[in-house]
Structures are given as C-alpha cells and as structure tokens.
Design a protein around this nucleic acid. Structure first.
Length: 799
DNA sequence: GAGTTTGAAACT
DNA sequence: CAGTTTCAAACTC
C-alpha cells in the first residue's frame, strides 16, 4: 500500500516537474519523507536532466516484502501500529530491505546486506534531514579494540556499483556515473539542508561521516567529490536508521569513531541520543562473546535529530560495513549516525528477540524529541568525551540522570512491544511489567500517536514508533513536539543538559561491582564502558546474566528502582500560561536533602532539573526549579523572600489549577495546588517569569535524568544553576511518567499516551493539562496527544 | 588528584 | 518503618 502511495506521489511529482515540493504538512508522514528527498533531488539540475532522459522509476515495491522476510524484521510493535507510524516504519523497512535484498549480488559481500544506493540514499537523505542521527558514543570511542574494516573497501566498491546499478531508481537514473550520482546525492542533501550542513559542520574537512557505508565510496572513488561526502552523509543517515546487531558493528563503529575521538559532532540539531536497550544487542553480545563488553551490548542508540526520529531498522551488518568504512574516513559523522549504545538489556532471560525484534525495537527506541523549540541551530560539534565516553554518551546534552535516561529508553522499548513477551526486554526499566501491561493500550496509543503525527507532522516514527525514552521524554515529546510545530525540518535538538549527555554515564564504583544502584551505569541500565573507572565491574556484557539477575533482584525489591527518577509532567499551566513552564517534572520519590538545600547535585531533584515536590522530605529546600512548597526559588536572594515568593507561586499555581481543573483530578493533587488561584501574572511577573516566557523548563533539560533532560530541549538549559524555577507547581504538573507507573496507576486509563504511554498506567497525564497546559507555543499536536492520554496525577503525594 | 561532604541505596 | 551503614557522586581544596 505504502509503496503504491509512494509511487503515486513520485509519479505525480514527476508530472509536476522538479518543483514538486513535498508537503510537510501532509498528514502522512511517510509520504513526505519519501517524497521530500526526491523532490529535492528533482530540483537539482542533474535530476532534471536525467529526468528528461528517462522517466523515473518508482522504487521497487516487490522486493520489499521479501527483503523484509529475509531480514526477518520483526513486525512492528503494536505500539507502532498507528497508521502513520506503521506506515513509515514499514516504508523504511521496506526500503532498507530492498537495499539489503540479498538477491542482489552486488551487495552481498560477506553475506552482508547492502544498501541500495538509490533508495538508501533517498531514505537516508530524507531521514537525515528529518531524523536525528544516532550517535553512539560508546561504540565509537570507547573501545580500543577495533575490527579491521576490511569490509569497508569492498563495501564501498560494491556500494558504488550498486549505485550504478540503481541508476534506475529515480534518483540514480539520472546519473550514470558514480560521480554523478554522488553529486546528485549531494545536491539532495543540500537541499535537504540538514544533512549537508551538518556534515560539513562536523568535519571541517567537509567529510561527512555518516554512518553509512558510503564512506567507502568516497574514498574508493577518488572521482567523487566532496559532494560525494554528502553522499556519505546520506548514507550515513540511513545507517543511522540501521541498527547494529552485531557487536562487530559496534567495533567498527568505534574504530571509525576513534579517529574522531575527541568529540562527537552533534547533529546540527542537537542530537540527543537515547540509549535504547536493544534486544538485539543482547543477542549480539551473546552470540558474539568476542565483542567487548559494553560495546556489544545491545543498545542501540538512536540519535534523534531535532525531533525527528531516526529509525534504526537496518540491519546491523549493513551498518557495520558501512560504518567501518566510514569510520575510517569520517569518524565524526559516523558518530552521529547509527550509534549504538550499550545498554544493558534487561531482557528477561530467555526472551530475546532477534532481528525482528531488533528492527522493531530499534524503531521503538526512537525517541522523539521535542524540542521543537530548541534551536536547532546547531550543528555543533559536540565535544565528546573523547573516545571513551562515546560509547555511552550519545548525546551530549542529555542529562545524567542516568536512571532517567537509561531507564527511559528502556521504558519505551518496552513499548516496543512485543509486548507479548513478558520477558521482553524491555528496556523498560523497572516498571517494565507495568509497561507491558500497558502495551495493550497500544492501539489507543497508536491512534493518539497518529493524531499527534497528523497534527505535528511528526514523523510517524518519531512519534509513534519510537518510544520515548522516558516517560519524561515522552511527556516532553508530547509537549514539546507541539512546540516543534510543524516545522518542515522537524529537526529537533536535544539539549544537552549541561553536563553530560545523558547517554554518557560513567561510574567510579569500587565496591559495588557496579551491580547496585549506586552505580550510575547500572542504575541507568547500561553497561559500564571504558570511560568508567570502576573496579571489579560486573556490569558488563560478559556478565550479562549476573547483571540481569541482580537487576531482577533489585526490581523485586523495588519495582521502580530502575524507573526514571524524574517524572516529567507536561504540566502546564493554562493556556496563557504560556508563560509557564513548559514541562515540569518531579522526582519520583522526592529528595531527602538536609544540608544541600536542594541546591546542589546531591539533590536528585535538582540534579534532575526538577523542582522539589510534596514527595520530598528535604529541609531548607531552595531548589531553584521549584521548592517543595511549590514556590520557586529564585536565588539566594529570594530566599529571604521565600515566603512571598511562595505565596506568589502558589497563587499562580492556583490559577493554573483552576484552569486546569481537570488536571487536578488526574494529578495526585497536591493540596497546595488546590488553593485558590491568584492571578497568574502576578506570580509570574514576580517570580518566574523568565521561565514562563521562555517556556522552557527550567532545566529540566539537563542532565537529569535522562529523559527529561533530553526532552527538554533546550539547549540552553544547561545548567542547573538554577534556574529559575518555573512557575510550575509541582502539583500542578502532571506528569506522565512511566516510572511512576505504580504510583501512577491511578492514572486514568486512557492509554493513549501514545508512545509514551507505554502503559496506560504509567503515564499520568492530566487531560486538561495537555490542553491547557501547553504553552501556547506548543500546541496543538501535542495537545491532542495529551488529551488523549490519560492523565496521571503528578507524583503521588507523599506525606 | 586527594580528601570531604552529601544523600541515596542498602542493610538491620 | 525507622535507624544505621555503605556507597559513590558531588563537591572542595
């Protein structure tokens, strides 16, 4: 079906001529994706010329199915089932499959799958533009061990050949020679804009190391110009989509990355990578013990580019070859793209899925980022920690909070769903069980997703498929995406929380063997990597069983142990609230600070860039993100005035509450929030205004916990230093988090949550919230989602 | 980089 | 559930 649709579009485009512009707005994302690249391509003179020569042929549809089978992609998780999402996914898969299609001799070298140049390019380009690139810091830098990229050359050659062959494809058709093709591609990229700039930015050299195999092409063919690099970029984009199943891939990655070692290039947009736990990884690890610990681990990281989700459906193998090749040539780019992350896979024992799942999982893994707001500006190179971190650190921006991050992704994965299997891995952090249960709600979710997609124009994948890393993220997505608005680009940046990318976690455990929650890596659900300074570490793929067993044990004690600590709420104030905080979040359990005043990272709330809530038992709370009492702490100065501020805040909150009365229901309700409202403005002006205006969450972005941080978006956030707290009121915020599921259970039922909602339970969303809460900027799409989503009360009030 | 502080996690 | 201990991150110097 999709293919047909694509064909039609393509044909139409042809008929229209070069100018066919893909309509971003089109509800159907898949089409857009496909079309877009094409259209861009068409615009190029070369294309036009070619076009005149021969009609463009639509991509082959037939192969797809077979390929799929061959590839054994797992059916998309129900989660993704949403029409849009599914469509996209499928389309992508298909395409990839085609590329992979074993039938083609050209590609098969080593039995590896190869990508069809044409399609691959198209997709990649497209993807690249839309999607964020995945970055696997881990793989990239982390390990020294490198596998020879022997394949690279071959791949490159093959790839080139393939390209030639593919000339039939619309794009390729036009071009006869590699060089030509490369140019065309380059043009496309350029058109796409995203990729090229990015790539360039990344490598001053102009190399774009996209993950893709393409790299080899460039190298291989001297004839290829720098533009060729673009090619690569395109490919790389595709690569991003791909998941690496095998550890080898990872290794290759690393190698390639190593050169780059100093930094990751961020996608132009802030890429945030999420670590997703992939079953695949596990498999790989298992299968290939040789793989080094950590690397092999299953995680696939998806870096999202600006909001777009990259699907990683491709087979790892392909990626490997491509990557390895690229790596050599272009380390950096590769980083972005398909990076894998080592995430611990907390699978249930036994249940491992293979490619199918992987593919699916990969998809699911995507997060959506929402930052629409975030300035995408950047194509920045992000300095990564050199090498080592890479493996983990995916995104520079994300917060630390491990749990959050790590967990989040997991959560989402869960969604992936296969839900059927209880054991699935799922990354779902602790609450996996919950999530699973939730899965059932997928349909609803899907729908919701679809809606959102429609509205937002988001990539289906992003929206639906990918899951949010954390609830937080999810929530964020929801919220933020709105923000994104329909921007054609859709790129989203993630912010890096100030400090570290979420992905990157390093520990320094000495006695815990990295098997306790003390260990950030373990807590985050990732394996320890080179950057870690831990001693006697058992948190490595080699000790997978031990890790899983320990994890289970811990979860048995506390099901939420691995759940994100910070729950994001979409809180929002009422509409006008635009001013208010964008998204707020709360720490699941609350902190217990006594001396730090919740002004240092000792405080989990602060660390998570969230305000303290009722759940907190802290003393002398001065949390800049929001004090326990609900007031915002404005700075030391304000401390004196706390009372006043608090009052103001409260009043504001109240206001919000009124507006969002509904939300309240959902929310756990904090007594505080309840109080009658006072004029928002009042409060705002006085206090938080800054935030509100900005709408950004205070810091959420930060490192904190993961997901949230990423979500938050805001690049700017960076730091925790405070930030003005948002006006948000804890209570008011509604959060949707998975983590809290248990707590959340209250939740309403609506499953909608869409992705996020992995489980209906998990997410808390207050309906009103969504609606009202969204800052004006955000808007509709998200709102819809939110509405659909069951509201959860924000954290359960603790007393 | 070593030492101290801090608060979560783990244990009792 | 409360109190204590252990632990490692965060912080300071």
């Amino acid at each position: 079906m999709e293919e047909e649709g694509e064909r039609k579009e393509i044909e139409e485009e042809k008929g229209k001529g070069k100018e066919v512009v893909v309509v971003m707005e089109t509800p159907d994302r898949s089409k857009n994706q496909i079309n877009t690249p094409i259209s861009k391509f068409e615009e190029s003179p070369v294309f036009s010329f070619l076009n005149s020569l021969s009609p463009i042929k639509p991509v082959k549809s037939v192969h797809v199915t077979q390929t799929l089978n061959a590839l054994s992609f797992a059916s998309l998780p129900s989660v993704f089932t949403s029409p849009h999402a599914s469509s996209l996914k499928e389309s992508r898969f298909l395409r990839r499959h085609q590329l992979l299609d074993p039938s083609k001799p050209e590609f098969s070298s080593d039995g590896k799958k190869k990508i069809d140049g044409n399609e691959g390019i198209m997709q990649y380009a497209h993807n690249s533009s839309e999607q964020q690139e995945n970055f696997d810091p881990e793989n990239s830098l982390g390990e020294t061990s490198v596998e020879p990229s022997y394949d690279c050359s071959q791949l490159a050659v093959e790839f080139v050949q393939s390209i030639n062959y593919d000339c039939n494809s619309p794009i390729s058709n036009t071009k006869t020679s590699h060089a030509d093709s490369s140019k065309g591609l380059s043009e496309l990229d350029t058109n796409a804009g995203l990729l090229v700039p990015f790539s360039q930015a990344v490598s001053g050299k102009g190399l774009f190391a996209n993950e893709a195999n393409m790299e080899g092409l460039c190298q291989t063919n001297q004839s290829i110009d720098a533009t060729g690099c673009d090619w690569e970029s395109l490919i790389s984009d595709a690569a991003d989509l791909l998941n690496f199943d095998s550890p080898k891939d990872v290794n290759s990655f690393k190698k390639s990355l190593q050169p780059a070692t100093g930094f990751y290039a961020n996608n132009t947009n802030n890429m945030q990578t999420f670590d997703c736990i992939e079953q695949q990884g596990e498999e790989n690890d298992i299968e290939n013990p040789s793989t080094q610990p950590g690397e092999g681990s299953c995680l696939t990281v998806f870096a999202e580019k600006e909001g777009t989700i990259a699907s990683s459906s491709l087979n790892n193998e392909c990626m490997e070859s491509g990557i390895s090749e690229k790596m050599d040539a272009e380390p950096i780019s590769s980083l972005y793209r398909g990076m894998r992350r080592r995430c611990l896979v907390f699978e249930m024992a036994g249940a491992r899925r293979k490619h199918l799942e992987e593919s699916s999982s990969s998809v699911s893994c995507f997060l959506m980022q929402s930052d629409g707001n975030t300035p995408s500006t950047d194509k920045q190179l992000v300095p990564l920690r050199t090498g080592n971190d890479s493996s983990r650190c995916i995104l520079p921006g994300i917060g630390l909070h491990l749990n959050a991050l790590a967990t989040t992704p997991k959560d989402f994965k869960v969604v992936k769903q296969d839900g059927s299997v209880p054991g699935r891995l799922v990354i779902v952090p602790s609450s996996t069980a919950n999530f699973q249960s939730v899965v059932t709600g997928q349909e609803s979710l899907n729908e919701s997703l679809a809606l959102t997609l429609m509205e937002t124009d988001m990539d289906p994948i992003e929206n639906g498929v990918p899951l949010m890393e954390d609830a937080n993220q999810v929530s964020t997505l929801m919220v933020n995406e709105d923000l994104n608005q329909i921007s054609p680009k859709k790129k989203r940046h993630r912010l890096e929380p100030a400090g570290e990318p979420e992905g990157c976690k390093r520990c320094n455990c000495k006695k815990s063997k990295c098997l306790k929650l003390y260990c950030e890596c373990f807590a985050a659900g990732v394996y320890c990597v080179e950057p870690c300074s831990c001693q006697e570490c058992f948190n490595k793929p080699i000790h997978e069983e031990t890790v899983l067993a320990t994890r289970k044990q811990i979860e048995s004690r506390n099901p939420l142990a691995f759940a994100p600590k910070v729950i994001r709420s979409s809180d929002s104030l009422t509409e006008d609230d635009s001013s208010k905080t964008p998204a707020s979040a709360r720490h699941k359990r609350g902190c217990n600070c006594k001396k730090s005043g919740c002004l240092k990272r000792y405080c989990e709330c602060y660390q998570g860039s969230v305000g303290c809530s009722i759940n907190c038992r802290c003393e002398g709370c001065k949390n800049g993100y929001g004090r326990k009492d609900g007031s915002v702490y404005i700075g030391t100065e304000t401390e004196l005035e706390e009372d006043e501020t608090d009052e103001l805040v409260k009043s504001v909150k109240d206001r919000k509450l009124h507006k969002t009365a509904v939300q309240n229901d959902v929310e756990q309700q904090n007594p505080e929030s309840v109080p009658p409202a006072t004029p928002l403005r009042f409060g705002r002006s006085s206090v938080q205004v800054p935030f509100s205006l900005k709408k950004k969450p205070p810091l959420s972005s930060l490192p904190s916990i993961g997901s949230s941080s990423g979500l938050y978006t805001i690049q700017g956030l960076a730091k925790p230093n405070f930030l003005p707290p948002q006006p948000t009121f804890n209570k008011q915020f509604q959060t949707v988090q998975e983590d809290e599921l248990p707590e959340i259970l209250q939740g309403n039922g609506s499953p909608i949550g869409g992705i996020k909602s992995l489980s209906p339970n998990s997410k808390r969303i207050s309906p009103p919230h969504c609606d009202l809460g969204m800052s004006p900027g955000r808007r509709s799409s998200r709102k819809l989602i939110l509405q659909s989503i069951p509201a959860f009360p924000s954290l359960t009030p603790k007393h």
